[in-house]
Amino acid sequence: MSLFRAILEKPWKQQTASGLPAEGDYGSVTPPQKVGLLFFIAVVAVMFALFITAYFVRMELDDWRPMPESQLLWLNTVLLFLSSFTLQWTHNVLKKGQDKQFKIGLILGALFTVAFVYGQITVWGQMQEAGYYLYNNPANAFFYVLTGIHAIHVLGGLFVWTKTIVKYWSGAEHEELELSTELCALYWHFLLLVWLVLFALVSYT
C-alpha cells in the first residue's frame, strides 16, 4: 500500500520539491468530499458496530425476550434497496449526460427513501399496538434504538440529497453534480448494508 511506502521515506535525505500531486496530475486525486465521506462512513460504521456489540452482550442475559418479526420489514428492505439502486443508476446516467433520466432517478431515489422511513414508522406503530413497548424488554429497546438511529442517518442522507437537487436547479457544473450524486449513491449503499446487518440481527436473534 502506498501509505506504508510513504512512511518508509527517509525525509532527512531528499531535497527536492517532488512528492505530492505532480504537475497535471490533479485530476486523479480523490476529491476531498469523497475522503471526508469515507471517513464519516467509517465513523458511523464504528458506532453501529458498538451498538451491535452491546446488543450481543445484553442478549446473553436471561431477561431477553426476542420480538416477533414484522413482515413489513421485508417490504422496507426492498424499498431501501430500490432507493440505493436508483441513486446508483442516477449517477450512471448523469455520467452519460442523460439529463432527463437523471432528474427522474434523483426524485425516484428520494421517494423510495421516504417510503422506507414511512414503512419503518409504520412498523413501530404495529409493534406498539401489539404491546411491544420500548421499556418492556431490552430486545424491544434495542430494536427501537437501532432502527431509529438508522432512520435518522437516512434522513441525514436526504438532507444532502436536497442540497444536490438545489445544486441542479441553480445550474451547477456537471462535474460538481456528478460528485454529489456519486457520494449520495455511496452513502445509500452504506445505509443499505447497515440495514441488512441490522435486519439479520433482529430477525435471527
Binding site: 510513504a6 525525509p11 520539491a17 512528492g19 505530492l20 475522503v35
Partner: peptide
C-alpha cells in the same frame, strides 16, 4: 475531525510528503 484528517490527506502543498 473529518476536516482535520481530510485536510492532512488531501490539501498538503507541493513537496509536503507525509514524512515531511
Amino acid at each position: 475531525g473529518l476536516n482535520y484528517v481530510t485536510t492532512v490527506l488531501q490539501a498538503r502543498t507541493n513537496g509536503m510528503t507525509l514524512m515531511r
